[in-house]
């Protein structure tokens, strides 16, 4: 016993905490190297905070009719001669402050984006795990459905679901139901990418011996998938989720612009652009321009973050 228990001299004492390991790690180092990524991250953070704190930051609640004054309608941005405080980015035809509308719209856009990503990721990861781990007929069925799914553009699927729901529930939907429809539409359009990526990673991981060791002690397949494989496929999933967040926001905006998205009572950035579009030719350019700029900047920033994350997590590109 004493002979066996000789302690290896190369063993050091305690391991640093996860926080220290993160800031000491390669991902953080690659973040610090890229100026563009830091700008993108700052911008994204500002958008998130703006959406989260819309209630505090906005000069007015744009959807409280009591706060709207027709007197203030169609005011240009503040730096313009006719601009009025506190309407930094001007107002629309109802006297609604554009900046406030953007902050509240951002909130709706991001909410739909996050929920859509969560829905599609859950669906895609589950199906990808099942296809990759079980293989055989399960794999064939799931991946053929994925192939078929890919031939339909996301917008088409969303319009389809929207149409079906409207036909079933009849006429106009309230804001909450519309939001759910959007989330489900986006989720069903984007799951394929997760499923394919996860399936690929699972096939690599499941051939490794730590899975064999887990099977050896009789762990059931679900436990192996969730406890062993899932933590090892999070890297690529995170990258897709980031890029898909931008895609989901765009898709939602497109749908809202087309009129099947969020109603005017609870507008997203896309709804604001649709409303503003009507005033473009009468010279009130700010009603459409600022929500448009906000949308473009948000999507660009998130995409840049996603690109960086993909490179940072890929050891071959480091």
């Amino acid at each position: 016993m004493s002979d066996v228990s000789r302690v290896d001299p190369a063993v050091s004492s305690r391991s640093p905490s996860w926080l220290v390991r993160f800031f000491d790690g390669d991902v953080w180092a690659s973040f610090k190297r890229s100026k563009l990524t830091m700008v993108a991250a700052t911008l994204t953070l500002m958008f998130f905070l703006g959406a989260l704190l819309a209630g505090f930051l906005s000069p007015q609640d744009p959807f409280d009719p009591a706060q709207l004054e027709l007197m203030n309608s169609r005011l240009p941005p503040l730096w313009n001669a006719e601009g009025q405080s506190p309407f930094l980015l001007g107002t629309d035809e109802q006297g609604r402050d554009i900046l406030s509308a953007i902050l509240y719209g951002l909130r709706i856009s991001l909410l739909v984006g996050f929920l859509g990503v969560a829905f599609s990721a859950t669906l895609g990861i589950t199906l990808g795990l099942l296809a990759g781990y079980l293989g055989g007929i399960t794999d064939t069925i799931i991946m053929r459905i994925a192939d078929v799914q890919l031939t339909f553009p996301a917008i088409l699927i969303a319009l389809l679901i929207d149409g079906v729901v409207k036909a079933v529930l009849g006429g106009n939907l309230d804001a909450g139901t519309t939001l759910s429809v959007l989330v489900v539409s986006i989720g069903l359009s984007f799951w394929v990418q997760y499923a394919r990526t996860v399936r690929g990673s699972v096939m690599v991981e499941k051939s490794k011996d730590y899975i064999a060791a887990a099977r050896l002690i009789g762990l059931p397949p679900t436990a192996i998938m969730i406890k062993h494989i899932l933590p090892n496929v999070t890297g690529p999933v995170l990258v897709i989720a980031t890029i898909n967040l931008a895609l989901a926001v765009i898709t939602e905006a497109t749908l809202s612009f087309l009129g099947t998205g969020m109603p005017e009572t609870m507008p997203s950035l896309g709804t604001l652009i649709r409303i503003g579009n009507n005033y473009l030719f009468s010279g009130e350019w700010w009603i459409v321009a600022f929500p448009g700029i906000a949308l473009a900047a948000l999507v660009l920033a998130i995409n840049l973050l996603g690109d960086w994350l993909r490179d940072a997590l890929n050891p071959k590109l480091r």
Partner: peptide, 30 residues
């Protein structure tokens, strides 16, 4: 009562698990 030791020690331990959880897994499973 039957266990296995594998060739590649880099692939036979789950990289996301702490060593104590890896060693404890059979104890918990049985």
């Amino acid at each position: 009562r039957i266990q296995m030791i594998f060739q590649d020690p880099y692939a036979s331990l789950n990289p996301r698990w702490k060593v104590e959880d890896i060693v404890a897994e059979p104890i918990r499973a049985f």
